[in-house]
Structure formats: C-alpha cells, structure tokens
Nucleic acid binder design. Structure first.
Length: 245
DNA sequence: TATAATGTTTGAAC
DNA sequence: AGTTCAAACATTAT
C-alpha cells in the first residue's frame, strides 16, 4: 500500500475529522493513548510516507511500513494499533508504527522534500542528489531525505521512464539526466496517485513485476537485492543505459 | 503451506 | 566513535 501517493489518499479520507474532538482512544500501541483524549484534531498532514495527526503541542506520526492498513467507520478482524472515535465517526490503523512527537509538524518536517507537496522543491532535490556521488541511483531515489514519498515501485518506474539502468552511480550520470530523474519522479508520483484513485495502478506498470519490456520486447531483468538498500530492481538491459565513467 | 512483498528502525558487530 | 548489517516487526496474496 504505502508509497507517498497512497498516503495522500489516506489524508484525504481522514480529513473529515479535522477540527473534531477525540472522544475515545484505544489500540495496542504502546504510546500514551490518553494524551489524545478530549483533544481536538488540529490538522491532518502527510509528508512522504508519514501520516501526521496534529494536536495542540504534539502530533502523532503514523508509518504504515510494508503491511500497515487503516479503516474508516469500520473495523477489521484484527486488533487496531490505534483507534480514534469521534461524535460523527471513527478510524483505525493496523500493523503500523505509531509515535508521539513533541512540538509542531512545521518544526520537524521540510515540506519542500515531500514529492507530493505543493511546495516540493526540485532544485533542492537535485542539489542533494548530485551530492550523493558514490550512491547507486536506485538507492538515491529511495532516499527519503531527498525524495520523501518515493518507494520501490516509483523507483523502478521512474528509472524505466528516464532510461537509466538502476545500478548507475550518481556521479556517472549526466547532470541533465539527473534533472530529468527529479522531474520525472515528481510527475510519476501524480500519475501513481491518479491511477491509484481509480484502482488501476498495476495496469500501468511498465517494468515493475513485468517480464517483457513494453518498448523493445526483450526480457525484463529482475535483481532481487540491488544496492545498499537491497531492494528489487526491474529493468530492461536494452533500453536503460548503464552509465559508466 | 511457504514465500515474498509498495519499509523502516534498532542494536549488535566490526 | 562511526559505519554496516542482520534482525525485528507484521499482513496478505499467491
């Protein structure tokens, strides 16, 4: 479920509870749940893959990790990690990481780093990317400090769209191509969002989980554990350029 | 039924 | 002391 665009959808679904008072808190999270009771939800935000619920002097950070899920006005069979009930309705989160963070979200997060944000700053991302000289591009794209919200699917798709072989070192990729990667990452995130809303994301995969290149028909290569982050990379050896010095 | 997958944090080991 | 790496966590479709 959870790459940046999915968290945007989550935020939209929960925004109906903005400004509402929490009547009941429950769940098996080890955080101090009572802290939210009787308090008003001041805001619902998202930053990359983080979902944030703001209260007066603290906020809740929810990360769905690999298997997290949520429900609005309904329950799953399993025990919720966190459940908030209001006069009008309720929502629950399952199998996720829940944290209380003191202070204001604006003091913690740089919104310009969020690929889904209105204030996403491509120049900033480019500068950080160029600085990661010795990194493989497949690792840099997953770097949440640079591309908050980009996950493994987006990584693979963006590298296919830009015709870059994922094992290319950042320092060997031309600057113009790096700029294109930054631009394409942002654009693809919004394609992902649009398709996800229509429940047709998978239909649009070009390389991720695919076996044949849509452009040239040759076999898609799958490397199970690529780079520092040891994540799956799908790519076309014919269409995607391995940059070497 | 065993396996693998859209992810991150932690703490041991070096 | 800083870096690296495996383990832990947890769900569901195939």
């Amino acid at each position: 479920m959870p790459e940046g665009p999915s968290i945007v959808i989550l935020r939209e679904e929960l925004s109906q509870f903005k400004g509402k008072k929490v009547l009941k808190v429950s769940g098996n999270s080890k955080i101090e749940l009572e802290r939210m009771k009787g308090k008003k939800v001041l805001d619902m935000r998202s930053w990359g893959k983080h979902f944030l619920i703001s209260f007066d002097d603290f906020f809740i950070r929810i990360h769905l990790l690999m298997f997290g899920s949520y429900r609005v006005n309904e329950l799953k069979e399993t025990a919720p990690r966190l459940r908030l009930e209001f006069k009008a309705g309720e929502f629950s989160f399952y199998a996720c990481s829940v944290k209380i963070i003191e202070g204001d979200v604006n003091d913690v997060y740089d919104w310009e780093r969020d690929t889904m944000s209105d204030v996403w700053n491509p120049e900033k991302a480019y500068k950080s990317l160029v600085a990661e000289k010795e990194e493989l591009i497949c690792d840099s794209l997953l770097d949440q400090e640079i591309f908050a919200g980009v996950g493994n699917i987006i990584k693979n798709e963006v590298l296919f769209l830009t015709k870059v072989q994922p094992e290319s070192l950042v320092k060997d990729i031309p600057r113009k191509k790096l700029k294109e990667i930054v631009k394409t990452a942002r654009e693809y995130c919004f394609d992902f969002l649009r398709w996800k809303r229509k429940f047709e994301l998978k239909k649009h995969y070009t390389v991720h989980t695919k076996s044949v290149c849509p452009d040239c028909g040759s076999k898609i290569v799958l490397k199970q554990k690529m780079g520092r982050r040891q994540r799956r990379s799908f790519f076309c050896e014919n269409c995607q350029v391995l940059y070497l010095k």
